[in-house]
Computed example of a mutant assay.
Amino acid sequence: MADQRRAWSDEAVRRIEADFNRSADTHLIRVELPKFPGITLYLKDESVHPTGSLKHRLARSLILYGLCNNRIGPGTLLVDATSGSTAVSEAYFAKLIGLKFVAVIPRSTSPAKIEAIRFHGGDVHMVDSASEMYPAAERLAAEAGGLFLDQFTYAERATDWRGNNNIAQSIFQQMAREDHPVPAWIVCGAGTGGTSATLGRFIRYGRYPTRLCVADPEGSVFHRHHADRSVTAPPQGACCLIEGIGRPRVEPSFVPEVIDRMIAVPDAASIGATRAIATRIGRPVGGSTGTNIHACLQLVEEMAAAGEVGSIVTILCDSGLRYAQTYYDDQWLEAQGLHWREFGQKATHLLN
């Protein structure tokens, strides 16, 4: 029996590695900023992964981590708590190795993400709020004798932060021949905290002078915890409408010590920047990309005011096609009370 399980696991790892071998690296898009000579913005386009988002990297790492720690075997039900994009990618890899996957998601998750999860063979279990996801996922996995993948705990340890083609290594390799090859800033968001942990550790491991900025929704706890470690929850009633980033609790994978700066971004500003950058590059992007762009433009203005030049790299997390009924629907935005147009006009002005 042990030999059969080992043989199954070996084949599962082979399939995942073969899938990776068939994939090209993601593009780094250069965005010129005519109003700011000497400062250039770059977008690491993670939307081109087979499952359409940055979370493709995380899902591959999480399932490999489970396999290589002998927690996944033939017939293991895989379960995770997620706002949607991770689940799409986890469903893809579960199907690749012949396993069932259940995503525990908030009811507010965009219909397009739910459709994508099911397209890749996953099932969906909905809960009313983000805080209910974790116990529901644990319970479903325990009842089936399965594995709760727990992205919020294992994201920072499942990824090899020293290299192995992680996103940080990819960025620095692709920047090598640019005008300013070592970025002044790298900007990302935080959902699990895994990406910021990987970037921050790699920067220090490579002894780069690059600084790491995390753009965080105004309603999230992360930027509050970064400023004051005693803060572990946002104020009562605080919420975030930007899917995939910002949390109501400090996740185990969030490592504030490797982050140089955090910028709190109102949801309306995220939407305004989302619309502005989508117009600038000619295709729709998700809301978390808008959060990143808002923070990037603040840093650009600060660099210009200080007479500095250099490059800023951020992440294009996913495509805006998943949000046609939300972030790109003016009626939906109005119903949420998001007054985004002024933010959009300012972002458009700075980008063009």
Rank of each mutant, 00 (worst) to 15 (best):
88 V>Y: 10
88 V>I: 15
89 S>L: 09
90 E>N: 06
90 E>R: 01
90 E>S: 10
90 E>H: 02
91 A>E: 05
93 F>I: 07
95 K>G: 14
96 L>P: 01
97 I>Q: 00
98 G>S: 00
98 G>Q: 00
99 L>V: 04
101 F>A: 02
101 F>T: 03
102 V>C: 13
102 V>S: 13
102 V>I: 15
103 A>D: 05
104 V>R: 08
106 P>I: 00
107 R>D: 12
108 S>A: 14
110 S>I: 06
110 S>M: 08
111 P>Q: 03
113 K>D: 02
114 I>R: 14
114 I>Q: 14
116 A>R: 03
118 R>A: 06
118 R>S: 04
118 R>Q: 15
119 F>W: 10
120 H>A: 11
120 H>K: 07
123 D>H: 08
124 V>Y: 04
124 V>H: 06
125 H>I: 00
125 H>F: 09
126 M>T: 10
127 V>T: 03
128 D>F: 11
128 D>M: 07
130 A>G: 00
131 S>I: 15
131 S>L: 13
132 E>C: 07
133 M>C: 07
133 M>F: 03
133 M>D: 01
133 M>Q: 11
134 Y>S: 04
135 P>N: 06
136 A>F: 05
139 R>S: 14
139 R>W: 14
140 L>Y: 03
143 E>Q: 15
144 A>V: 09
145 G>C: 14
145 G>H: 11
145 G>S: 09
146 G>Q: 11
146 G>E: 13
148 F>P: 13
149 L>H: 05
149 L>I: 14
150 D>R: 13
150 D>W: 14
150 D>F: 15
152 F>G: 01
154 Y>Q: 08
154 Y>F: 15
155 A>L: 06
155 A>S: 12
156 E>S: 11
159 T>R: 05
160 D>V: 10
161 W>Q: 00
163 G>W: 10
163 G>F: 09
165 N>R: 13
165 N>I: 08
166 N>S: 01
167 I>C: 00
169 Q>P: 07
169 Q>K: 08
169 Q>M: 09
170 S>A: 08
171 I>K: 04
171 I>Q: 03
171 I>E: 05
172 F>V: 02
172 F>R: 02
174 Q>E: 04
174 Q>F: 02
175 M>V: 02
175 M>P: 02
177 R>M: 13
178 E>Y: 08
180 H>K: 12
180 H>D: 14
183 P>C: 05
183 P>D: 04
184 A>K: 14
187 V>C: 12
187 V>D: 05
190 A>D: 01
193 G>F: 13
194 G>W: 01
194 G>V: 05
195 T>Y: 07
196 S>P: 07
197 A>F: 06
199 L>M: 08
199 L>G: 01
